[in-house]
Nucleic acid binder design. Structure first.
Length: 225
DNA sequence: TGATGATCATAA
DNA sequence: TTATGATCATCA
C-alpha cells in the first residue's frame, strides 16, 4: 500500500482512504510512505498530523483554509487514551487580533473550519512507542444546533474582549467549549492588537482551541457510548 | 494530575 | 511573519 498522489474527489472517497489505514500503526504508515520516524514527539509535535495528511491526500502547505478545500472538509487527528478520551486540546486556528468590523460568528474562521470535520483518533499514550500507536477509524462530524450555539457563545465572548482592547485579560479558563491560548514559536513572538483606547499594542499571538471536554463529547456521541 | 501557558518543526 | 501540524512541561 502506498499513499495517494492526488486529493480525494468526494467525501466518500476520503472516508474510504481513512478506512484503509484504520487499525494500522504510525510505524507501518511511516514505513510504507518512506517517512522517517522520530524517537518521540518533543521536537516533532505535528508529525502524526502530517503523516495522516499524506495518507489521505491533503494538499500540502499551510493555508488558513480547510485541508480539503474542494470538499469543504477539515482534517483533525486527535490523540486518545485507552478509553477513547482526548489527551490534548485541539487547535482550530489563529485568533485574529485586529478584526475588521462586520465579522460575525457566521462568517468567522472558527466556524468555517468546524463546519465539517473529519476526526481521526490516534493512540496517544506516551507509554506507547510512537511507531506502535494505532490509528482508529475516522468519522465525519458537523456541529449540531446545540453545539454550534455553545461555540458561538464562547466565540462572541472572546471576540468581544479582543475588539474592546482587552485581549491581555483573556484567560484560557474562559469558554466552555472554545478557549484562547498563546500560539507561537516562543514567548518572545509578538503581534499587533488593539488596546482599550483603540491604539495598537504588541502582544503574544493567540489561537482558538477546543477543550478536551468538548472533543470528548464529540467522540462519545460518534461511537455511541 | 490535569489544565494553562509555552514551545517545536516546517512552509511560503 | 503568519500559517500549518500539534504536544510539551510546569505549576496550582
Amino acid at each position: 500500500m502506498l499513499p495517494p498522489k492526488s486529493p480525494p474527489n468526494t467525501p466518500d472517497e476520503l472516508l474510504t482512504r481513512c478506512q484503509a489505514i484504520a487499525g494500522l500503526t504510525l510505524g507501518e504508515l511511516a514505513r510504507m510512505a518512506n517517512v522517517a520516524i522520530p524517537a518521540n514527539l518533543q521536537r516533532h509535535k505535528g508529525w502524526p498530523g502530517m503523516l495522516i495528511e499524506k495518507w489521505l491526500g491533503a494538499s500540502a502547505g499551510s493555508k488558513p483554509q480547510q485541508d480539503f478545500p474542494e470538499l469543504g472538509i477539515e482534517l483533525k487527528t486527535i490523540p486518545i487514551d485507552a478509553a477513547f478520551a482526548p489527551l490534548e486540546t485541539t487547535y482550530v486556528c489563529f485568533a485574529p487580533l485586529l478584526m475588521q468590523p462586520g465579522i460575525t460568528w457566521e462568517t468567522c474562521n472558527v466556524r468555517n473550519k468546524l463546519q465539517q470535520v473529519l476526526w481521526l483518533p490516534i493512540e496517544g499514550d506516551r507509554r506507547i512507542p510512537l511507531s506502535d500507536r494505532r490509528v482508529a477509524t475516522g468519522f465525519y462530524w458537523r456541529p449540531s444546533e446545540k453545539e454550534d450555539e455553545i461555540l458561538r457563545q464562547d466565540w462572541e465572548e472572546l471576540t468581544e474582549q479582543i475588539v474592546t482592547g482587552h485581549v491581555e485579560s483573556i484567560t484560557s479558563k474562559q469558554g466552555t467549549a472554545l478557549h484562547i491560548r498563546p500560539k507561537a514559536a516562543n514567548g518572545s513572538v509578538l503581534t499587533e492588537a488593539r488596546g482599550v483606547e483603540g491604539e495598537k499594542i504588541k502582544t503574544r499571538p493567540r489561537g482558538f482551541y477546543l477543550r478536551k471536554t468538548f472533543t470528548h463529547h464529540i467522540l462519545t456521541s460518534a461511537f455511541g457510548y
